[in-house]
Simulated assay, not measured.
Amino acid sequence: MDSERVPIRVAIVDDDQLVRMALRLVIDGESDLSVVAEAAEGDAAIAVVQEHRPDVVLMDVRMPGKDGLSATRELLELPAPPRVLVLTTFDSDELVLNALRSGALGFVLKDTPPARIIDAVRTVAAGNPALSPAATARVIAAATGAHSATQQSPSGESARNQLSTLTERELDTARSIADGLGNAEIAERLNISVATVKAHTGNLFSKLEVENRVQIALLVRDAER
């Protein structure tokens, strides 16, 4: 029964005490979620994760001391690491991108409605990316806008090699993801079913060894530079 389910254990990492309090109130109000730890900066985050073993870490990006990016990288190197959901105000796009490259499963805006934050926590806890198509497009735009059109990415050749393992339809799906399209929009563009899009996306995760749609999109962008 649902009442017998073990709650998803959550740690909140943010240097703003009010943000932590608000998130705790929202999360602890759900029967299937429980805040087990808080931290105000990266080193403390690593310590509380090692002590409390949360399933999901809500990670702020900009903090004094060790920032969220560095902390995310260290957390993801731990045995049985937690899922990391990045908190952002979109004034730190490059850090968010790097966190996603490192394996964080998604991000939420700090002004996201509480119900959507809860959904994102549950989604990430299940091992799935919490990234809306619109947010994906915005982050990708931030990444590509930071580079000159003529600048060659050092990872371009590696990205092209990875994409060479895909079928034509899988590559079309990857390019559509890079354009920020959702599953229904990809299905319409490629004239295939949503179920087929999901199957292609699953193949992309496996073949490219990535964990979220942003990582797929970044590989496509790197390959095209």
Rank of each mutant, 00 (worst) to 15 (best):
A126M: 06
N128M: 15
A115S: 13
P114I: 07
V108R: 00
T144E: 07
A120N: 09
P114F: 04
L105W: 01
E94G: 03
A142Q: 03
S176D: 04
N183M: 08
I186G: 04
S164M: 07
S102W: 08
V108L: 09
A184G: 10
V108W: 01
D172M: 10
G182T: 07
L181E: 01
A99Y: 01
D111R: 05
K110F: 12
K110S: 08
R160I: 04
S148H: 09
A149V: 10
T150C: 03
K110M: 11
L166H: 00
S164K: 14
D93Q: 11
I177N: 00
R175T: 04
E168Q: 13
R101M: 11
G156Q: 13
P129C: 04
A187D: 04
R175P: 01
G127P: 08
H147S: 11
P154D: 07
V96R: 02
R160V: 05
S92H: 12
L95H: 09
G127M: 08
S176A: 15
N128K: 15
A146G: 14
L109N: 11
E168V: 15
A143H: 08
L100A: 05
F107C: 13
L100C: 04
R116C: 08
A126E: 15
D179C: 08
A141Q: 08
A174H: 01
T123K: 08
A135W: 00
D172Q: 13
E94F: 12
Q151M: 14
R116T: 13
L95T: 08
D179V: 07
A115H: 12
A137L: 12
G127H: 07
F107I: 10
L171N: 12
F107W: 10
K110R: 10
D93Y: 10
R160E: 01
P154C: 09
A146M: 08
R160Y: 06
L100Q: 01
L171G: 05
I186T: 06
L105R: 04
A137T: 05
E157T: 11
G145A: 03
D91L: 06
L109C: 14
A125L: 03
E168C: 07
S153K: 07
S132R: 13
N161H: 14
G103N: 03
E185C: 05
S164Y: 03
E170N: 02
A126P: 00
V121A: 02
V139E: 01
N98F: 09
T112D: 08
L105H: 00
T144L: 03
T112V: 12
E157D: 11
G180M: 09
E168P: 12
L131P: 00
E157V: 10
V139S: 05
E157W: 02
